[in-house]
């Protein structure tokens, strides 16, 4: 192939490629925003909406029926095995498995898209920067552009970035089948059964609950500032207001912690949350878990010994 070569290309190709990339990115973002906000009119300029973790837990599928503990172990194990792979091709394959999982769990793809959007900034930074900043090795293929000799597009870097992006996407796509198919308290109870200390598990649930309360407070406070003529700008006054704003948020949250704790005590809290859950293991749970772990190992073998 092109190993160790330097390919000279006219500069116009670079500009054309950049333009095409930019347009693709621009339209993709716009289309995604549209898709995500069809049901949601733009309430404010600052989007602080927090999605629901366990949006579809009432559904019925292979994933919904799967015991949480097995699901956690199997899918997290699979994620770790995916992360251990190296080639872009195995990352792509992993993405395929994740997509299959979403389809099997009958989850809406839109929510997974939203998660992909969240990592898109990070991933595109890698895709753009890695090929350009990679230190050149003797057997690297470089694309050079006439007249711009400081710019070297390293194809090995592109491969590396694609592999990282693929792995990140694969694990991100796995989040929905992992989290959305059982209620959050149940997932957390599963974690407890797997050895996470109970107190820490409670903390996850409590934090999660109060995020929404503080978010409402924050929105109202932001509105209050807005209608009094405040605008977020790049200046010190804005930072000062932001400081007050944070301070107020913290004061209110500290006050609330005590009220919440009092309310917990008043209903007999003695350091543990009683969990209203049953767990029952079936052969199906074992098989399902085994499937994912075997798939993960196979993927890793393919990656290491498959000739890529």
């Amino acid at each position: 192939m092109l190993d160790g070569q330097i390919v000279q290309l006219p500069a116009s190709i670079l500009f054309a490629a950049l333009a095409v990339l930019f347009l693709c990115w621009f339209f993709a973002c716009r289309a995604l925003r549209r898709l995500l906000s069809t049901a949601q009119p733009v309430a404010e300029e600052r989007d602080w909406s927090v999605p629901t973790i366990d949006a579809d837990f009432t559904g019925d599928s292979l994933f919904h029926r799967w015991d949480v503990r097995f699901k956690l172990v199997a899918l997290l194990g699979f994620a770790i095995l995916v992360v251990a792979t190296r080639s872009p091709w195995s990352a792509l394959l992993a993405c395929g498995f994740s997509l299959a999982a979403i389809a099997t769990a009958k989850l809406p793809f839109l929510r997974s898209l939203r998660r992909l959007m969240a990592i898109s900034g990070f991933v595109s930074m890698f895709l753009l920067l890695m090929p350009l900043t990679l230190a050149t090795r003797p057997d690297d293929t470089l694309l050079m552009f006439s007249d711009i000799d400081w710019l070297r597009f390293n194809l090995r870097g592109l491969g590396l970035a694609l592999s990282i992006a693929g792995k990140a996407c694969a694990v991100t796509l796995l989040m929905e089948p992992l989290l959305a198919t059982s209620s959050l308290p149940r997932t957390v109870e599963g974690l407890v059964k797997l050895g996470v200390p109970e107190k820490v598990a409670q903390m996850i649930l409590l934090s999660h609950r109060y995020i929404f309360v503080f978010l409402e407070e924050t929105k109202r406070m932001a509105t209050g500032m807005q209608v009094r003529g405040f605008q977020w700008r790049s200046n010190v006054t804005t930072l000062q207001v932001a400081g007050n704003f944070l301070g107020m948020l913290f004061v209110r949250s500290f006050e609330r912690t005590h009220r919440v704790y009092a309310a917990m005590q008043a209903r007999g809290y003695q350091g543990r949350f009683p969990a209203p859950f049953y767990f029952k293991v079936t052969t199906g749970d074992w098989l399902h878990a085994a499937f994912w772990l075997v798939t993960g190992v196979a993927l890793l073998c393919f990656d290491r010994f498959g000739g890529f």
């Binding site: 409670q202 903390m203 996850i204 409590l206 934090s207 999660h208 609950r209 109060y210 995020i211 309360v213 503080f214 913290f250 949250s253 500290f254 609330r256 912690t257 005590h258 919440v260 704790y261 917990m264």
Partner: peptide, 8 residues
């Protein structure tokens, strides 16, 4: 529990 609420 208080740390948890403040974390939010």
């Amino acid at each position: 529990p208080k740390v948890a609420v403040v974390t939010a």
